[in-house]
Design a protein around this nucleic acid. Sequence first.
RNA 1: GGGCCCGUAGCUCAGCCAGGAUAGAGCGCCGGCCUCCUAAGCCGGAAGUCGGGGGUUCAAAUCCCCCCGGGCCCGCCA
Length: 647
Amino acid sequence: MGSGNPYRMLKRSVSNEISKALSGVCADSELLNRLEDMIEEPPKREFGDLSIHLAKLSKLCGTSLDDLVNLLTSSLEKLDLVEKVVVVGGYLNIFVDYAVFSAQVLTTITSYGDKYGVVDGHVRKRVVVEYVSANPVHPLHLGSGRNAVLGDFLYRLNKFVGNEVQRRYYVNDVGLQAAFLAYGYSKLGFPEIPPGMKPDHYLGLIYAATTTIIDILKLRRSLKEAEAAGDFSRANELRGEIDSLMGDLAKLAEVIPNEVNALSEKIAGEEDPELEVLRILRGYERGEPEYLFVRKVCSKVIEGIRETLEKMNVGIDVWDWESDLVWEGRVSEILEKASSSGYFRLHKGAPALFFDELLSTELRRRLRIPEALEVPPLILKRSDGTTLYTTRDIAYTLKKFEEFSADEVINVIAIEQTLSQAQLRLALYALGYEKEAENLIHYSYEMVNLPGASMSGRRGRYVTVDELLERLSEMVKNLMRERGSEVSDEQALKIARSAIKYMILSVSPSKTLTIDLRKILDLKQNSGPYIQYTYVRARSVLEKAESHQLNAIDYGKAGKEPVRTLILELSKFPEVVSEVAVSKQPEDLIAYANNLATIFNKFYETEPILREPDEGFRALKIAVTHGVSVVLRNFMEICGMDVLERI
RNA sequence: GGGCCCGUAGCUCAGCCAGGAUAGAGCGCCGGCCUCCUAAGCCGGAAGUCGGGGGUUCAAAUCCCCCCGGGCCCGCCA
């Protein structure tokens, strides 16, 4: 009955025994199913390995404390896995027999190897993860970086536990942003990307300059109106806003002076630049040949983004162009279906889906929409006939389900889109795609902040992932140089990107992430490099161990600290992985790995391994070291970190 | 105005959903440890009114209510 999960098996055999012992006396038969959850881990080692809160059990069971203690102690001590049972401070503390348990744990690790952590009997699912999907108008910034790391984690985690997973990137080239970029780029006469510059970086500047110039012109018009109307406080306010945008533009002009000048001139000479942008959008959405340059521009940006993702070791299986979706007629199909739906009505003259009649408590629960969340109607089209993002996303969602025969589609999208993602699920439901609506998961994450700086793609205020990688790689190299060793660019990059991933995954996605550039490359404890280093240490011991005579393992010594704690931690890995596979909370996995690494380092520092004179004990210590290397490697695989053999 | 998320040591964060044994890490700070398996390490120390106030309970960081602070959303943007 090797389930691949020794810790769970341990808890289960204890809870089964308790359940047997109580079956005659316990009033609540339901309780026996919940026993496994009632077994907890004591806060301190001297309290044993597992414990049960007696008062809670006594209350639920209706049995006196004394009876419980007598009944449980005698039956649990009969188990091979249990060494002794002690009652302290209202708790029944169970001490595990490590001679038996360690053999189970270590043989499981050896036989499962790079599959240790995968629990037997997992029902395989087909999962699509859509992530990154940054607009094709600027380079990936730190926010998209968080998205990429989380999405990559979800992909790897699903893959690891045995699911079929597909990774998709949705290229939003039919939106207003793309049209703004295409507009600015066309005004400049489609210049070549300057040599030595990544296309996404260059075009990101053009995009920011274009939108900023247009916004300034708009504000100036409002300013004139305000002045004419004698509204001085409004005029002052506008002047402030204009100044701020002029500041942003000046910064952009430091990098691309010629482009900024040319754009300012050309756009200022335009009657109504925004109308021009809409014209491009409309023409492109219709697929008119003279507007296909939009796709060309976006392709260049995507080229740069692709390069960045490669540097991050983040992969994408399918690149979906939103324009294809429209041109294939998938979006108009949805529009047709929507207009004949019972939920279709006009909202301020625009075609829309109304959800009021649909929003029962039951449906909110099924579609994971908060009880009090007000959901406004979903507007499907602009008055000029072009479609809106969420409308196109309905078609896209169905495509993702269809093409991969997916059981579940996960959208990794920032928390600010909670409402539109809820509208998306409701729209799917309203149009009869109930299963899809229920199995569409919005995996949301909070914003990324830089201390003392606000980021904005429209203004060109952002720190790019490329920049971050470069700076961290440089720091890694300097650090290595200080320690007297050179490191290759590739090795430095591997350490840098692993540090970023670890740092991002260690913070709960529901919390805003503050990135302090000086602190991110903390190579100390609780960091990516710390895990990589610990793994290298373990591997280094194992390599040298190969030359040693291999002896039979003496499991009898497994109860000695710190070996005992190490074995217990190793046993928990599959449990942690399966919990995280459900909760999708990377921080739990990170916390586990950091703890394991810390315990191993303590063991490594305080105990001789290869120099252990007792041969049987030495063999045990080597087996434990091997266990640590397996778990850390599997952990790094799930987190998308690079496994280094030498550092 | 309504809604969602967050508030735990100087800083960055676990713990809260399923309430219970002196509230945990890391960074930073103070003090130790390299003729010995990689010192990106280890050992020890100082540091917290768990945002505030009520309530439920034998027991609240954890559950309920109110308030305060921060972020986000409520667009014919995405």
